[in-house]
């Protein structure tokens, strides 16, 4: 739901970011309030993923200007792990494979680290097992996931389900999902959407970075932002996503150029 009077969860102002010396983000302003779902759309190369990675603190993405606050806290003063502990979650477009470490032990390590940082009790392996199986059931994910190495040999869809599982366990204040829907079949898409919807709560917010309108059939965004050339060039509601689906991006880019001229 749109929550104009709600608490500001993420506030980005004038963010510029470069990768390998090339400026990708050229001034992003974004305000996300508690309870809201935002979709960030745009053609390839528009800077959507760069925004997600810059917020999460990937070392290859250099913030050159502007600021970002999560719950009023300066995000860019924090290391990536501190951002995670503060309640930011990035769902990866390409989750990393870690052969040799079971998913169960990785999930427990991540969960306990974040719980510990929030002053909550950590769970021992047995307690965690009960807890994680509950989440698996909720998300309709096969428990065999736990015994496999992290993402090792997972299909694209399985990796994305694993991202959603991690999100569900870590219970972030703000989840940024970077193209979590790309390359998914309809079942996997439903699991992802289901996970996102079940996380959705009045005190949390979700930012979906997506190339296609497809995911938005399952998740209704309160705001749709269109990025191009490192800027947000248009913001609207879910009807904007439908319009993009039928008309493509070109008309927007052209009108953007006309405005710029």
């Amino acid at each position: 739901m749109r929550n104009p009077g709600g608490k500001l969860l993420l506030e980005v102002r004038g963010l510029t970011t470069s990768v390998s010396g090339v400026e990708i983000l050229k001034g992003i302003d974004l305000a996300v309030r508690e309870g809201e779902v935002h979709a960030i759309m745009g053609p390839n190369g528009s800077g959507k993923s760069t925004l997600a990675k810059a917020l999460a603190g990937h070392p290859a993405y250099k913030v050159t200007g502007g600021e970002a606050r999560l719950d009023g806290q300066d995000l860019f003063a924090l290391a990536p792990e501190e951002r995670a502990r503060a309640g930011l979650f990035l769902g990866f477009q390409y989750p990393v494979e870690v052969p040799g470490v079971t998913n169960a032990s990785f999930l427990r390590l991540a969960y306990n680290t974040v719980q510990g940082a929030r002053g909550k009790d950590e769970l021992d392996p047995l307690e965690f097992d009960d807890f994680v199986r509950e989440k698996l059931k909720l998300l309709d994910i096969n428990p065999a996931f736990l015994d496999r190495s992290v993402n090792d040999g997972f299909s694209g869809g399985e990796k994305k389900r694993n991202e959603i599982l991690q999100m569900a366990l870590l219970e972030p204040r703000l989840a940024v999902l970077d193209e979590t829907d790309s390359g998914l079949d309809i079942d996997a898409l439903r699991v992802v959407a289901n996970g996102v919807n079940s996380l959705h709560a009045p005190d949390r917010a979700i930012v979906l970075v997506t190339h296609y309108q497809r995911l938005l059939n399952y998740i209704t965004p309160d705001y749709v932002h269109v990025m191009a050339g490192g800027r947000i060039i248009k913001t609207g509601d879910k009807s904007l996503a439908l319009e993009l689906e039928s008309r493509g991006y070109d008309w927007l880019l052209e009108s953007g150029r006309a405005v710029a001229a």
């Binding site: 990937h58 951002r83 470490v101 390590l109």
Partner: peptide, 20 residues
């Protein structure tokens, strides 16, 4: 970065990857 984004410190992330 992937492991740090899940809350692990840089040292813990490096250790886990080396172990793996």
């Amino acid at each position: 970065f992937y492991l740090r984004s899940r809350g692990l410190s840089e040292a813990a992330a490096r250790n886990l990857l080396t172990y793996a």
